[in-house]
Design a protein around this nucleic acid. Structure first.
Lengths: 340, 340
DNA sequence: CTCTGGCACTCGACTGTAGCGAGTGCCAGT
DNA sequence: ACTGGCACTCGCTACAGTCGAGTGCCAGAG
């Protein structure tokens, strides 16, 4: 395990060159392009050690070296300093996001921005309902037996659902229902509403029990079970950039994975205390994504985290740059959310 | 232009074989696989004519023939009878769509269903707001200077938008506003609301003029300008099926085109009286899609058309099957919309 | 006039061989 | 511990040769 500083420098150089050129890198080219201060032969010896330890490998004998997933991991963990964005980039982000009129708009702009800046596939989760608080519940009578339930969360997210009532309900009763529901639920975090929703049924006037029961069913369904998580995606065209060298020739599995909301949620939705997460190749739990890397992070107003965002690209990607971009975009979106 | 029946039969056979095998088809193979009742030599002569007329071509000398866009066009127009779906398929469609709880759900299910049945990229436009009627307008007070405007269309589509008022408004006034707006606009087709919205400002009480002005601005924006058209997409992974033989090796342009909502709308949104439209290769106005074909149609409750749907695939696709599927799915969705 | 069988021809796909060169591993020397 | 040198490996490219599917054309039969 003895990896002295120079061996690490060699690994860093290999990663940087390979990411830039997409071609296996040999000892001679390395000493030419980086000031390592030693001869190719020495580098070769270091390479042999690095290969033995599993950080790099040769596609075939008599070819240069290529980093392995493990090599990238070491690079990310110990060898790369996050490169700060240029002021121009920061301003671009700010300006682009500032134009948003709407939560939907914010999410759309964010995902496009991420895709464009990183030149990769971007994924943004809508602010999770479970992590939001109820700002207001609205009941709109459509007919005597139909209500439109509109849930407005403090993150600005709005969800609606049609409710089919078991029996006709008078307009005054709708007002009644609305008041009761709002009194009990406004300000509560959505993930904690289920018990309260149960209690609602008992508390309301007897002749409204039926209506309230279906209403609360739909409420629970909307808030907790279904739909709950929405996702925006952009930049899939970037997958086809690397001339099929990345992703070992077939985009099929990647595209398939990206079509599954569940998969995407798994990718970026598991938000932990740690600010930012990088999953490299094999580290991905999803089989279809074994040839890809994912950089993801949570975002939200202030320290609260309401959702995740991230990008997906070939394992051979510019980690420092991507990490910096994802982090910066997430921070700006968080500020934007906090303002409103 | 003398294309007798046999030449047409040859063309049909070529198209069918090529679609099935993805390989240039030669004269010998043709007579073996189809009962044409003539010798290869005769077929060759017919092929020479077909080639001269531009319906087929040779990738290189001494290779079989491949249909041109023009050949596919002729095939679609005159040589293919729409093959009816099997009862099993019909039932599958019905069952799958029947489970939908929601307009959103209907659209999502539809697009996935289309992608799955045709094994191609599916696109479904949400019921266009411009073509819907207003069922209800709701104003939800968020704070004294903020309203949430919710527009509910008769197609079940719901659109919401935050309104920042120029000055605080009392709760009673909100009720007033809501009543006025609903009285004037409910039942009106959205594309015809603009003049009425203008009139609203004049009619309302003086102390509400300011509020009504911003409100109507947002209303117009929401209904007409922005956002208005939404699109669902599925099955992009199917693009990567044909092993890069379709789409001349690069998915890039296709994926790029699919990312642009505007492009997608152009693809399937131009709904005309004609029931179903097939655009083959070069016939596509969008440059990036010159290597693809699009089968699209309008849908809606009864004879009204509220949106478009369709699929996109390689020019080498099973036109009869795809056409039948798209038509059937559109019809079922129409019925579903009519029921509610 | 139409169809057919025959024949020469074309040209892409595949195979085998050879030379080149990037890159390596090893070793002896400083 | 580093370096220069050297033999070796092996993928890549070019080139020649063969094979065969498929064609176009033509003369002859119906």
């Amino acid at each position: 395990m003895g990896l002295d500083d120079r061996k690490l420098a060699v690994l860093r150089a290999i990663v940087e060159d390979y990411v830039a050129t997409q071609e296996p890198v040999g000892s001679k080219a390395l000493v030419e392009r980086h000031q390592l201060g030693v001869s190719p032969a020495t580098v070769r010896n270091d390479m042999a050690v690095l290969e033995e330890e599993g950080y790099i490998r040769q596609p075939h004998t008599s070819a240069g070296r290529v980093p392995t997933d493990r090599g990238y991991r070491l690079f990310v963990d110990r060898l790369s300093r996050v490169k700060p964005l240029s002021p121009a980039e920061r301003r671009a982000i700010e300006r682009f996001l500032a134009g948003a009129v709407d939560l939907d708009d914010v999410v759309h702009r964010t995902v496009r921005l991420l895709a464009q800046l990183t030149r990769q596939v971007a994924v943004v989760q809508y602010p999770s309902l479970a992590r939001s608080r109820v700002r207001h519940l609205e009941l709109v009578p459509i007919s005597t037996t139909r209500l439109m339930l509109v849930v407005i969360a403090d993150t600005g997210r709005v969800e609606q659902r049609l409710v089919e009532l078991p029996a006709p309900v008078h307009a005054d009763d709708v007002i009644d229902l609305r008041r009761t529901v709002n009194e009990k639920l406004v300000g509560i975090q959505l993930s904690e509403t289920p018990p309260l929703v149960q209690a609602l049924i008992d508390e309301c006037a007897t002749h409204l029990r039926g209506a309230m029961t279906t209403l609360s069913t739909v409420l629970l369904e909307t808030l907790v079970e279904r739909h709950e998580e929405r996702i925006a995606l952009a930049g899939t065209a970037n997958l086809a950039r690397g001339g099929l060298l990345d992703f070992q020739g077939s985009l099929r599995p990647i595209l398939e994975a990206l079509e599954e909301e569940v998969v995407l949620l798994k990718l970026i939705g598991e938000v932990e205390p740690s600010t930012l997460r990088v999953r490299i190749g094999d580290e991905n739990e999803i089989d279809n994504l074994r040839a890809a890397s994912v950089v993801s992070t949570g975002y939200g107003p202030g320290a609260v985290i309401v959702g995740g965002m991230g990008v997906l690209g070939p394992t051979r990607m510019d980690y420092p740059g991507t990490i910096a971009t994802v982090r910066a975009v997430a921070r700006y979106v968080g500020e934007l959310l906090a303002q409103n």
